[in-house]
Nucleic acid binder design. Sequence first.
DNA 1: GCCTAGGTCCCGTTA
DNA 2: TAACGGGGCCTAGGC
Lengths: 255, 255
Amino acid sequence: MEKITTVVPKSLEEAYTFLKSRIHERMVIIVVGNCRVEYEGRAASRISEGERILIIKKDKAVLLHRPFGYEPINWQPSSSIVSISLQKDSVRMDFIRDRPHEVLRLEFRDIFFIGCYRIEDHAVFEMYGCEKDMQEAIVLEPEAIEDGLNILEVEKKISCGVIDVYGMDKDGRIVIMELKKDKAGKEAVLQLKRYVNVIGRELGKNRVRGILVAPDVKSDAFKLLKELNLEFKRFTPKMARRIIRKHKVKTIDKY
Amino acid sequence: MEKITTVVPKSLEEAYTFLKSRIHERMVIIVVGNCRVEYEGRAASRISEGERILIIKKDKAVLLHRPFGYEPINWQPSSSIVSISLQKDSVRMDFIRDRPHEVLRLEFRDIFFIGCYRIEDHAVFEMYGCEKDMQEAIVLEPEAIEDGLNILEVEKKISCGVIDVYGMDKDGRIVIMELKKDKAGKEAVLQLKRYVNVIGRELGKNRVRGILVAPDVKSDAFKLLKELNLEFKRFTPKMARRIIRKHKVKTIDKY
DNA sequence: GCCTAGGTCCCGTTA
DNA sequence: TAACGGGGCCTAGGC
């Protein structure tokens, strides 16, 4: 059970024999070779022969990469069922998943390289600067939005969706906040408007304000916002991070 | 200039020397090793040490994959600027892109394997069963949607977006069609509503119809559709393919 | 450059 | 299970 095994096969038969013995094991397998591809499932695709890189991961996620570009040209999400067979002039691999039923078939006319890697990665991935951070920061420090604001609820579920942050201003009016980590577009404005309408119908229109909270708004979206009598407050993921860090320090200081 | 070169380096120095000499060449490089990662750009992330697979493509698209899962844990889209350096206990690689400015830094504490592949892939990728197919089919055979329908325009640009298919029904009313290849949700309904509003304001509300054309609608979306006085017509990518194939045969028959 | 919209999007969360 | 929204989404097409 070596950590790494690599083969530069001299024939398709050799490649097939090697792959067959490992393809069902829980390891990462990389195959470099010339293949054509057919996919059928939610959509359908085909591509004729070309030199590509196939990655089969431990969880049977499958990626077929061209020598350029960020995205795989074909793929199968994790838990696909793998089968391999030796054809007359090719090594065929089928990757099948159910729900939805999708079949990815590779036909390798040539295999240049096979690598098998028994690798482990249990680290925890940490991400900052996402919408969740903005929400957390506003809860910690509502005055970052405006003085006298009180947060009543986050992720408040209403009939037609979820309100990111729900609060009350110093004059007792309800404040509905829609957060965006990027420059906000029209959908964000209309989303906010729907929430304001629903709550407005319940509590009375002039008792409800809607604030789009984002680093920026697209110009058309800003026009729409004004037309719909909504507000905009600039707030960025970076500002959120600063607030969160500050409050973490405070919490630590207490002890 | 071999097509494939692989190395199982005995030291970080060896790995560094090898990588340094090839990392700027137009080839695909795969590195398997133990690294930690920091990313800063639109957001920020960090992950501590773990065994991962790095792929640097010919166009300097960069993918860092864990041994499981479909998605890369960190990445850089094509055209990133690559640099590599030997640190005290690690090989460091920086991948930088501008607009937006983003930095991805990998710190390899251990490198198990390096592979370099000079591969070519010029094949054309063909995809079927996408929204474009539905559009094409409706143009070829408008009666697939309803009798007496006339198509006037596709991809019609209006102030707030693009109308997939724009036509006129047998009674002379404008028909705005929003296509979805999958079960349609609320966004699709709202998208359609926006277009109908805009055109309705121009031509008069009762002169304009909106039809959501999709294989299915989500139940809440259907309610919303009815409330907003819009229509639904079932139409699938498969039905579209059949129509397109039929018309291709006809075209061939002519000659 | 910005904006719009699609994607075999994937993925997590929740009713 | 379906529905909904986020994402460093990426990518293509317009203007």
